[in-house]
Design a binder for these strands. Structure first.
Lengths: 150, 150
DNA sequence: GCCATGTTATTGCATATGCAATGACTATGC
DNA sequence: GCATAGTCATTGCATATGCAATAACATGGC
């Protein structure tokens, strides 16, 4: 294959590049809506997961949404500092404590809910109905999947 | 809406969260394949864009793939340090110089091409034919789009 | 109990990402 | 030709992300 075709191919069809581009745009939409509330899209994402899974260990969050433990240590530290989540005392396992949303964290969730809805609406219109449905389907197959399986 | 439903809704249907999850998984696939060559998925992505667009200004790259100029300054600096790209002297505009791929950069592109093909294959199988097609369609609508348009 | 093995969390390192502010240059109006 | 407005790039700041190495704990076999 000529060099130019190889480059055009990599530039025009790389699924990773496309996914990253799409993610940057989508994240920007949510960040814009959430800015008045002082949290970022990624933080809301994490807060929601912690709120839903109740007392939950870091490793489990990582398995759920495919995040490296080291990333979680740091991202969750920010949220601990903000008082949105807290460590739960009662635990059988000495390797770190489970996390749960605090009352202020839950209140914040309710407060930002309309802004999230708005961003979600914009994202849905950008993706189109079939796009949104497919994105949902695709990623639902990844939820809770151990890394490295293809 | 009860609090639990609100949380389930945000956790289970957030398009941004899904897109980020998917992107993490996909990026991991490409990173694994590219690791022996000493470059990361994001760097290959950028190298390909510079190689294709020829002498090109940072701002134009940013418009193409929706990347903040400040992000580009730093990401491109790494690639300049590695000698994969270079600044082009002849320019009418004194605000920074256009960039192009160097010969070593082009050689690297050819060398990693099979690894990229392999990762692309894995990504395609993970997404399925319709998923890959849709991801392509979705993001092609974003190429070259000015930020903030929804 | 002790050791080998496995699991969980953290830390050092490097990069990716975006906002706000700034500097440097260009283009436009007069 | 100069002042104003606009464009391009960089820097400071904060966060997001993952790998390799390590620390801390758990578990199973003996």
């Amino acid at each position: 294959m000529p060099k130019e075709d190889m480059i055009s191919n990599m530039a025009g069809s790389c699924l990773m590049g496309r996914a990253r581009l799409l993610t940057r745009v989508l994240t920007g939409i949510y960040d814009d809506e959430l800015r008045p509330f002082g949290l970022k899209a990624t933080q809301l994402n994490l807060l929601v997961v912690v709120a839903q899974l109740g007392p939950v260990r870091r490793i489990e969050i990582g398995r759920m949404i495919h995040l490296d433990p080291s990333t979680l240590t740091r991202n969750l530290q920010v949220m601990l500092n903000n008082g949105w989540i807290e460590e739960v005392a009662d635990d059988e396992d000495g390797r770190g404590l489970p996390l749960q949303a605090t009352r202020p964290g839950m209140t914040l969730l309710e407060k930002v809910s309309p802004a999230w809805e708005c961003a979600q609406g914009k994202a849905g219109r950008l993706l189109g109905a079939d796009g949104a449905a497919l994105l949902r389907k695709l990623s639902s197959g990844l939820f809770g999947t151990a890394p490295g399986r293809v």
